[in-house]
Amino acid sequence: MDLSFSSEQELLQDSAVKFAAKGYGFDQYRKSLAAPGQCDPAIWKQIAEFGWIALAVPEAAGGLGGSTVDVALVAEALGAGLVIEPYISGAILPAAILAAGDAAKQEATLNALATGDAQLAVAYAERGGRFNPAHCDTTATKSATGYTLSGAKHCAFNAPNATQLIVSARSAQGIELFLVPREAKGLSLQGYDVLGGGSAADLSLDVVQVGADARIGTLAALEAGLDKAAAAACAQALGGMKALLERTSAYLKTRKQFGVPIGTFQVLQHRLVDMFIEVEQSRSMVLLAAAKADSADAAERARCVSAAKAYVGKASKFVGQQAVQLHGGIGVTEELDIGHYFRQLTAFGTRYGDRDFHLNRFASLAA
């Protein structure tokens, strides 16, 4: 397998790194935290103008038709820059689900998503489901004009910012996906901010009526989309881990104790090396997951993504904890970005399935 990037991918990565380092920064991060839904509209539009959302949109629907590896390169840079705009939950995940169905049928929705004129959210989680998309008590009853949706969804990321929501519901044919307008009668949202930046909402669907054309996919499309989102989230976490390693290394070279930089203490050098090892091993797992996320073999895709999510989940926790401890008390202050990176990595641990969920899924697929 050729693991080298193409010249186009190198340019893509370079542009994303420059934006995160120079066009965003800690001041913009704090500004986005204060924005409605913790998403700055100007930054979101800029992300769209760069074509980074269009990477997940098929060429047939006016997008760039990029791979998950392309998306991962952007996500890693955004993670390193502490960017909290909902790139994965508000764009990549819904675009992947829509593209898995009839992309031409959803061309208008995908175009609005790619240009930054719309954001979407995916509502699949339910209380008691423990990250399993096949756990679905929400019902879809076929009517004369379409479908009637009833039920409740939990923690739909980016729902407060979404103009439309992709909702999973169980019909006579099994679990299906429906595109529901935010203003649909009978749909109510209880929004809230989430750890690490961003927003989510709990949904209540009280006899929500949608047309026959609102049906956009099946459980298979949801599972494929979630795997691509998980692979991108792993890349985003890798970016945060890399940033923490760089900042911690620089701090150890400048912070002095007993008249010398604490980075000269061998025990702290060992801890920094341990952080480096976890970052590099995570990089390998992220590349594997991104490369296999587009596989036509659903079992292979799920196995590789779960392996990466389980490993990076553990590694990111270790790197985050070491960075905070090596910085001391200042590592958890609001004025320093270290604690904010730590929060993002902590939130990543349960986003799109926690370590236990993915270890169990990997074990079941490897048996």
Rank of each mutant, 00 (worst) to 15 (best):
E76V: 07
E76L: 08
L78C: 11
L78A: 11
G79W: 11
G79A: 07
A80N: 12
A80M: 10
I84L: 14
P86F: 04
P86M: 07
P86K: 07
Y87C: 05
Y87F: 15
I88R: 04
I88Y: 03
I92K: 03
A96M: 04
A99N: 02
A100D: 13
A100G: 13
G101D: 05
D102F: 10
A103F: 00
A103W: 00
A104G: 11
K105E: 15
Q106W: 09
T109V: 13
L110C: 00
L110A: 01
L110S: 01
L113T: 00
A114W: 06
T115D: 13
Q119I: 12
L120G: 02
A121I: 01
A123N: 06
Y124N: 11
Y124K: 03
A125V: 10
A125N: 14
A125K: 15
E126R: 06
R127C: 05
R127H: 11
G128W: 09
G129L: 08
G129Y: 01
N132A: 13
P133K: 02
C136F: 03
D137W: 08
T138K: 06
T138P: 05
A140V: 09
T141A: 14
K142Y: 06
S143F: 02
G146N: 08
G146P: 10
G146C: 06
G146W: 10
T148H: 07
G151F: 06
G151H: 04
C155F: 15
A156D: 12
N158W: 06
N158D: 14
N158F: 08
A159C: 01
P160E: 06
L165R: 02
L165C: 05
I166V: 12
A169M: 03
R170P: 01
S171M: 10
A172L: 09
Q173Y: 04
G174R: 05
I175H: 07
L177W: 09
L177I: 04
L177V: 07
F178H: 05
L179V: 06
L179N: 08
V180F: 00
R182H: 07
E183F: 08
G186E: 00
G186R: 00
